[in-house]
Design a protein around this nucleic acid. Structure first.
Lengths: 246, 246
DNA sequence: AATGAATGTGATTGACTTTGACTGATATTG
DNA sequence: CAATATCAGTCAAAGTCAATCACATTCATT
């Protein structure tokens, strides 16, 4: 029988590799009972090493908010990866890049190739990932929000205001023609708003399910950024700022 | 019968090869009793050569901390924990606390109890640990240094300069009467220097092995902070700024 | 040689932890 | 709304633990 500690480590490694994994898969792979796997997942989740979701677990990713049920499902994130790959391809050698906290934006990092670009982010996880991949990273300073481990607040806003980004990527919980881009958390919205103001080429990355949705706080007008998504809803087919990632 | 020393060596070698090993396996392989294996594991764990876990032991996965691998070996948890416990007890309700990057300072977090205090740190790991324990945390903004995942550089210095700390804790690689406190990295030294200037009650936490040592860059005079250590070297017994943690 | 202090060992113990099966509650799907 | 899957909780059995004890060996002192 495997040591409990070793089992936990393997779960974390597996979850991080595959991004999401089901309880069933873990049972087979680690040859342990459902109860044991569930207990492990609960413990790892409470330590913040993984995120438990219905049916299994996902890698730790900073998401806009935990109340978004769709985000908390196990989903094979093919769409997100496609979106991320396209977004990453937009970064060029001399860019000074802002990357917002969030799941979709995190995937972008996996596809970045331009080692000369300089990156700024307010997400602790993104910063670590970037620096481990050998990119030059600046972390935004300020209050650390416990639920998402993103940096927010006055200090953060002030910090960002010093920079002028050439390109930036933001996540969103809602894309709506009338109210623009929206998110549930006022503090994160404020950071998004300010960072967008300081940026020349603005991209909102989102899967198509967010089209039409409205979350409590708006952080930008619909026309103020290009939207990268996986397929364009017919209702929005006349918009020239929506890009379908192939 | 095998020599105790040889048995220990074999355990370490086995653990490092296999990454994890159970007590049962070791009993068979070394033909020793459970009691003996357990005693060996306890000793090796306290020396930091392996990590004891429920059911057996795992290899020490040394994380990339450029300078203090040696430190981790010489003197493992007990002394550091004692130092950390004492340091943590100094934090009171209304404190605005700076915590420097480093292993010893990280241990302090485990013993903090004062939930009303506010914390600032330039170490990503410390910030996450603090926020998960329910403390209010501000992360210093600036360039993320890959090797230590600490925030350094101009931006960081400027960020820190906005604050006035009531109490702060710093690690060091050398404590020397003549040259003061020293560390190998110029950038981290700069951050230490600036954060100390902005702080009223300054504490350097260090194990006694660092006394007398000199590292490349000085960041503070010997007299400018109180030193918390586990035992006072006789050569320094006349100093009134050294505290032995009980 | 005899003594006894110091150390290393293995057996035994009761306390504690982990595990897998089971169960009724809750969530998801068609 | 019914069928199915997943969930958290409880339980007994198995496994693991630290503490203690008795015994053997070593080694310095008498």
């Amino acid at each position: 029988m495997m040591l409990a500690e070793e089992r936990s480590e393997r779960i974390v490694r597996l979850v991080n590799e595959k991004k999401s994994v089901s309880v069933q898969e873990l049972m087979e792979y680690l040859d342990a009972s459902e109860s044991t796997i569930r207990r492990d997942l609960a413990a790892l989740d409470s330590r913040g090493e993984i995120i438990k979701v219905y049916g299994g677990a996902m890698a730790v990713t900073l998401k806009a908010h935990d109340d978004d049920i769709a985000e908390r499902r196990i989903l094979f994130p093919e769409e997100k990866k496609r979106i991320a790959r396209y977004a990453a391809s937009l970064v060029t050698k001399d860019d000074f890049v802002y990357i917002d906290a969030g799941t979709t934006t995190e995937y972008i990092i996996d596809y970045l190739t331009e080692k000369n670009a300089v990156f700024v982010t307010n997400a602790v996880a993104h910063a670590r990932k970037l620096t481990r991949s050998g990119f030059s990273v600046y972390l935004v300073g300020g209050r650390l929000k416990p639920s998402t481990e993103a940096v927010v607040g006055n200090s953060a806003a002030e910090f960002i205001s010093k920079y002028n980004f050439t390109i930036g990527f933001w996540g969103t919980n809602g894309v709506n023609r009338a109210v623009g881009f929206t998110t549930p958390d006022p503090e994160e919205a404020e950071i998004k708003r300010i960072s967008m103001h300081r940026c020349k080429r603005r991209y909102v990355v989102t899967d198509s399910s967010k089209f039409g949705a409205i979350s409590p706080v708006s952080f930008a007008d619909f026309g103020s950024a290009k939207v990268i998504t996986e397929k364009i809803d017919s209702i929005y087919s006349d918009c020239d700022n929506i890009i379908a990632a192939d």
